[in-house]
Simulated scan of single mutants.
Amino acid sequence: MRSHHQSAPPLALLIALSALGVLPFNMFVPSMPSIAREFETDFATINIAVGGYAVATAFTHLIAGALSDRFGRRLVLLAALAIFVIGSIGCYFAATIYIFLGFRLLQGSAVAGFAMSLAVIRDTAGERMLSQIGYVSSAYAIAPMVGPTVGGLLASWLGWRANFAAFAILGACAIALVLRYLPETNRRRSTSMMQQFRGYGQLLISARFWAYACCMAFTIGTLYVFISGAPAVAVQTTQISTTMVGIYLGLVPAGFMIGSFAAARYGARLTPLQLIVFGRLLTCAGLLIGGALAALQINHPLAFFGPCVCIGLGNGLTMPAANSRVLSVYAGLSGTALGLASSITTAGAGAIAFFAGLFIEVSNARAYVVAAMLTTSLLSLAAAALIVRLEQRGAVPLE
């Protein structure tokens, strides 16, 4: 076991890389009106900076894992961070909206910080893998909570371009830290990219892989429905200030952070399957309570936002456990499996939020949002039940 830990980098570095992987998603959001005014464009165009970034992160997930199985975690991470720094500098100096959006897409490579952190943990943590993934995942929740506040302050003091200067500096610091403290941890690299392409085929015909991927997609899909639908519910609920809306919206990420810490704390006592199922049951129970309160026409904001805390708690328990199993079950394809599962999760959750949004209006927001979230959470529970069944059958893992 000693050799398994000798090349392990500091956990604090992996947590920081995970936070950097998600921070660019929304830290600049308070500056979007200023960016639209400076480039004299409409909000729909500038919103590509958010939607396009999400697509770029899905693509990064898809290829970074496979590349790291072939060329190593460290090299892929350094390349991704270098692309992120270039994208950040390009956004800072952009003279037109199209140049800005083009370089903004390059910033999506930052998500490799999260993906490679999980892969490194898989390589080095041994029996502590689930606990360490829980701590890293908590950073994935904290960063989006504090990012808009920090970005808004930077923009108010120094202008919107200051956000992208900060990204460039953070990326450069990350490169320096990786060069200094993160050794190569992948000791079982594949011999060719063709082997990785065949790995995609193996994964795509694996029932167990699809069970995990669907569980993760529906789990995050529930969160995306909340994020997209909760503001409409807040509008429907009278006498609620903008400040309180922000506080209520922050309850779910706070729940995710607590759930991730719980997964890290009790990861050695409970199996990943137990955490996955318990997380799904907790989310379903909370949303059933939310549905009952809506049916009883109890209209206090906490009647909606309170039960939704269970979305964060449940996701915080489920996602670290699911990620750890995807990394473990497909030992010879750990990076490839994680990348493909993360890409499916991102794309699937985005599609769920999009289709749910087609039916949500201010007049029916609460009922439709609760119904959509309950539907996706029940589907994630069904996928979790399928995972348990397939694991109990003892299918041979892909090597």
Rank of each mutant, 00 (worst) to 15 (best):
H5R: 12
L11Y: 11
A19N: 04
N26I: 15
R37V: 06
T41V: 02
I48N: 01
A58Y: 04
R74T: 10
L75F: 14
L77I: 07
L77F: 08
L77C: 06
L81I: 14
A82K: 06
C91K: 01
I99A: 08
D123S: 02
D123L: 11
A125N: 08
L130I: 15
S131K: 08
Y135E: 05
S137P: 00
Y140R: 02
A143W: 09
V146K: 03
V146E: 02
P148C: 12
A155Q: 15
A166R: 07
L170R: 02
P183L: 02
M193S: 03
Q202Y: 12
Q202P: 02
I220H: 02
F226M: 11
A230W: 14
T243R: 03
G246L: 08
T271M: 12
L273Q: 11
L273P: 03
V277D: 05
G279S: 11
L282W: 00
I289R: 00
L293P: 10
A303T: 07
C308W: 01
C310D: 05
C310H: 03
L317P: 05
Y330D: 13
T345R: 12
A347R: 01
A349F: 02
I352G: 04
A356C: 04
N364C: 15
A372V: 05
M373V: 00
L381S: 01
L386C: 13
Q392T: 13
